[in-house]
Design a protein around this nucleic acid. Sequence first.
DNA 1: AACCCGGGGGC
DNA 2: GCCCCAGGGTT
Length: 350
Amino acid sequence: MLDLDKLFTNYTIPEFNENLVTWFNREKRDLPWRHNKNPYRVWVSEVMLQQTRVDTVIPYFNRFMERFPTMESLAEAEPEDVVKYWEGLGYYSRVRNLHQAVREVVAVYDGIVPEEKERFEKLKGVGPYTTGAVLSIAYNQPEPAVDGNVMRVMSRQFGIYDDIALPKTRKLFERVVRRLMDPSHASDFNEGVMELGATVCTPKNPMCSLCPVQEHCYAYTHNVQEELPVKTKKGASRIEMYDALYCRRDGKTAYVKRPDAGLLAGMWQYPLTERGTGEQVNGTYVGQVKHVFSHIVWYLDLYVVETLPEGDWVWLDGEERAKLTVSVAQQKLEQMAGVDDETVRRNDDV
DNA sequence: AACCCGGGGGC
DNA sequence: GCCCCAGGGTT
């Protein structure tokens, strides 16, 4: 185990805190969830920000908070309505877990986000990072909130070469943060480190000349910014190929609902058949959609067909379709089908 | 510990 | 193309 006493030898902890917090309060970006820090808003923002960039989250956060301004309003809503406000944001289990957790807070904790760590961390979708982030930012509790930014900043600051892809490494950085953080400025410390990682101590080409904690930084001193943090590569994605069937009847289009568990759980799409396993598709080829997930690559060949194989598809008009939640892959197919419809209509006109 | 789970942006 | 992103759940 890494010896923290050795790590902090000749290291001035108060100076790090002073420089970081002063910098953060001068340079912090104007973000919607910083306008007021009620625990519910902080919580929603932290869930949306999981593996998702700030610029992507901002419009989703604003729409979500406008529609569900309080935990009570969210608790009362139907799951299908809530998921619709997450459409396109990805990792949809986040919103289902958040919805369930907020319902629990309203029912069990009288609508107050629990300040007790042992209670908050047990809520659905709340892991070690979100626990520390909400308790420190909303309640100023001295809890570590170790995300990718924190591991990058701290690995460089102290020259820690542990592989950040390993689960146990996060715990190491939690020990580092507990040792380093000034407990009376927990909120500014955690937000400050993350802000630093997002804007200055970036993965590529960090702007060390702008860094408030450059002086004692191991990576800067030894000029090894590019080799930290250490992270092992993940394996190659698997490739999946499907035929997507676009079938119209009486002004309606066939859709199926994906299974309630697994990839894109419960979301709606055109009927898909795995290529090569079924019979040859009897239809008109339109084109191919490529869609990249974090661990899978989809190639979807779109066909216009007159008849469908057996399945639980339903017929939807435009108004009905608009209420349902679909993946971005499905949006690409609809775009392609729509373009094809336009082509057909134009040719009919001629 | 390893794998699953979206989508987008930077280089 | 590859990497990363204010990660968590399941096995």
